[in-house]
């Protein structure tokens, strides 16, 4: 099977509501992600998204395409923070395939800034 990546996915502009919704979904109540004063004390202008938010957006883009049951591994590296108003764009490149498992590289960017990079291995649905 040859995987062909779908068009990139754009999510945003990221709102305070998006961040709070994810906090409620995942249970991350670090004030950095909902309290502007806490964010300022940490050196940011306002709250930032938690890394797991952009990881979840990236993973959703991937599994909507390949099927979550075929995902064998996913490794996500957090490169830069996602701020309010950022639009996240996620895209994928298909790498090598061996023994029914395909390697996929993913990137999430906010404008010109890469915020997350990821590597995934995906099993051929027929294997």
């Amino acid at each position: 099977m040859t995987l062909r990546p779908p068009p990139s996915r754009r999510v945003g502009p990221v709102t305070r509501t998006d961040i709070v919704r994810f906090a409620g979904a995942g249970g991350d109540f670090n004030p950095l992600h909902h309290d502007p004063e806490a964010a300022r004390r940490a050196g940011f202008d306002d709250v930032i998204a938690m890394g797991q938010f952009q990881a979840g957006v990236l993973a959703g883009f991937l599994t909507d395409w390949v099927g979550v049951e075929n995902l064998r591994s996913l490794e996500v590296r957090f490169v830069a923070p996602v701020r309010l108003g950022d639009t996240i764009e996620v895209s994928a490149k298909v790498g090598s395939a061996e023994s029914g498992v395909t390697q996929i590289s993913l990137t999430a960017s906010a404008g010109p800034t890469i915020v997350v990079t990821a590597e995934a291995s995906v099993a051929d649905p027929s294997s």
């Binding site: 994810f22 959703g60 599994t63 909507d64 099927g67």
Partner: peptide, 10 residues
């Protein structure tokens, strides 16, 4: 809830 929060559409 988690799918919605991560814009996952499946």
């Amino acid at each position: 809830e988690f799918a919605r929060a991560t814009f996952t559409e499946d």
